[in-house]
């Protein structure tokens, strides 16, 4: 177990090093939280998304159809912490298929980005937690409509601050020896999914991000909220994860912020339904 964990963090550090001189693909969060067991703990998060060519110094794959295109990239998201803090680790290779209308700008044919577009993200990877007591192999395909362009006059302004998506997730939950790990509070696996068995879920996501609504003494203040729900088709169970964050932006480019955060439900793979709240800093590199 220790070897696997060490290998994972070595990989994490290697990729983080690669990103430093490149195009800000890495977001780190660090804060203090009150956990499900009402204990004080440290919480940290990592979001990483890098285009293939930046990572390997060569052009990535782009299939350019008449009214569509496809690109892919590696991605991982980590939420973890001390004590019984929620933990969720996702490592995957994601691709994006886009369908769009075209328009002419300065006599050049280009995708119409102020028209509705249809985005179909697909990914394959693993879901696990920080003790690796749950390891799921997951394939995901989804639909995300694009309606957020400020130039779209038919879409209400408030709606342009939202995003919605629906996904199908299928995979397999691998058997692990968990006899030496005691999981409790926010670390407990509350999923009905069984080891050595298949996984089939429907997932719906909705987010709202106001960015900076107003400014006080040069500090922009905004609100971020997200709601994710899963329907476990094989076990007839529903899981959810709700998150609300008040952000205090510490730079004009919004790459540094101080956050007050509340989260109900850990999300995959544990689907723990406890709650935790806290405060911390988020930096984008």
């Amino acid at each position: 177990m220790k070897k696997i964990r060490s290998l994972f963090f070595i990989c994490l550090l290697s990729v983080a090093q690669l990103s430093v001189a490149q195009e800000k693909p890495l977001q780190l969060s660090l804060g203090t939280i009150k956990t499900v067991l009402k204990e004080n703990a440290i919480d940290f998060g990592i979001k990483y998304l890098q285009s293939y060519d930046s990572l390997f110094q060569q052009q990535d794959i782009l299939f350019a159809g008449k009214n569509n295109l496809f690109q892919f990239s590696p991605e991982f998201n980590v939420q973890s912490g001390t004590g019984d803090a929620f933990s969720s680790v996702n490592l995957k290779l994601t691709g994006l298929l886009m369908f769009f209308q075209t328009t002419e700008i300065s006599e050049v044919i280009t995708p119409c980005t102020n028209c509705y577009m249809h985005l179909l993200p697909v990914s394959a990877g693993i879901e696990t937690n920080n003790t690796f007591t749950v390891v799921n192999g997951i394939f995901e395909a989804g639909y995300v409509p694009w309606y957020q362009s400020p130039m779209m006059t038919k879409v209400p302004d408030w709606l342009k601050h939202t995003k919605a998506g629906i996904f199908v997730q299928a995979g397999y939950k691998f058997s692990r020896d968990t006899s030496i790990v005691e999981s409790q509070g926010g670390q407990a696996d509350e999923s009905a999914e069984m080891e050595d068995d298949g996984i089939l879920r429907l997932k719906g996501s909705f987010t709202i991000d106001t960015k900076s609504i107003f400014t006080i003494s040069g500090v922009g203040i905004g609100i971020f909220g997200s709601a994710n729900g899963w329907y476990d088709l094989l076990n007839n169970e529903v899981y959810y994860r709700l998150e609300g964050t008040m952000r205090f932006f510490l730079s004009a480019s919004h790459d540094k912020s101080f956050n007050l955060n509340y989260q109900k439900g850990s999300g995959a793979p544990n689907f723990n339904q406890g709650d935790q709240f806290g405060m911390g800093l988020t930096l984008t590199f």
Binding site: L49, L62, L69, F72, M98, P121, V144, W146, D209
Partner: peptide
């Protein structure tokens, strides 16, 4: 980080310029 995975503004912008 304004979308779901790579369905974000940075990624889409780069893809449409390359297209």
């Amino acid at each position: 980080i304004d979308g779901y995975g790579n369905a974000n503004s940075k990624y889409i912008y780069r893809a449409v310029i390359r297209w």
